[in-house]
Amino acid sequence: MPDSQPSQNNTQILGTFASILGLLGIFLYFTAWIYRWAYFGYFQLEITQLSFPLRSFFFVPIQVFVGNGWAFTKTIVALFLVATAIKITLWFVEPLTVAFILPLSKPFNVVTRRKKWSKIKRLLRVIAKNFHQSPPSKFIRELATLVPVSLRKDLIIVIWLLIVLFWLARTQGWDDARRDAVNETSTLPVFTYIFSQEQLVLGRNLDDVFTDPSLKYSRFIGDFTLFDYLRGREDNDPNLKEPRIWRLLIENNKIIYCFFGLDKNADKKQVPAVLAIKTDKKGQVMILAPSIPK
């Protein structure tokens, strides 16, 4: 009998530790997904079109939280603000927790299970009957009394953490994308793709860079201006007033996404046109841009 209590305590500690690790993994994955969604969304790419190994999502948050001095400063400020917001929210909803009776410290037995099930059924009845009939304030009060106090506090903490993680990941993803879109600050590699003459309608001939490929057997759907905007600009030219340097954004699912970078004086709203080249099929090229270039 005396050994049962330490064993039960160890089991509870391991269960709590496993729960914390699971929640931490969810937060890290959520942060990485939002960061990549914002980063590639800047270049008009949907993250659902790309495939990444699952393990990579658990390292991306390092860039979000401590990628540079400004990111680290935002993280510290955000933690302070979210702690304050959680405390104020808990203080605001505290009067709603007085009417709740069932504490989680009670042993889990058949009676407790029946009480919990009865509360769930009552919760469903309140939602079904009173949502459209009762005033919003009365509905919220009745709903709040059916949610356990500790669960209510956990929900508030989780919601605020998700909000601040969304904000940090989105802003950092957008900032990093803008940095990589500008030639002077880009961390993306300079790009060169060599292919056969019949493969693409865009590109320069290696022996004659001034001759455009024939368009006789080519077709297009969409806006021809995008194609005409890139045609004749397929090579790097750092000597221009606004240097033209092609960079590789990503190669994913046998598709190469590339673009030529922006000048440092380019408008903040300007986004480069991205060229998507399918490497497994000849002649298929897609051009992505937020608007038609002038």
Rank of each mutant, 00 (worst) to 15 (best):
P2E: 09
Q8I: 08
N9L: 04
Q12R: 13
I13K: 15
I13N: 10
S19Y: 09
L21A: 15
L28I: 02
Y29S: 06
Y35K: 10
F43E: 08
L45V: 08
T48W: 03
G67M: 14
T73S: 13
V77A: 15
V77E: 07
L81M: 13
E94G: 05
E94H: 15
I101F: 09
P103A: 05
L104F: 12
T112W: 04
K115A: 14
I120M: 14
K121N: 07
R122P: 00
I127F: 12
N130F: 00
Q133C: 02
S134A: 05
K138C: 00
F139P: 00
L143S: 08
A144N: 10
A144M: 11
L146C: 11
R152P: 02
L155P: 00
I157G: 00
V158K: 02
L161F: 10
I163T: 07
V164C: 11
W167P: 00
R170C: 05
R170E: 11
Q172K: 12
R178L: 07
R178I: 06
P189L: 06
I194Y: 11
F195L: 08
D207W: 01
V209F: 02
T211H: 12
T211Q: 09
P213S: 10
L226A: 01
D228Y: 10
E234C: 08
D235K: 05
D237V: 04
E242D: 15
E242L: 12
P243Y: 15
P243K: 11
L249N: 10
E251R: 07
G261N: 09
I277G: 01
K278T: 04
D280Q: 06
Q284P: 00
M286N: 09
M286K: 15
S291H: 07
I292C: 03
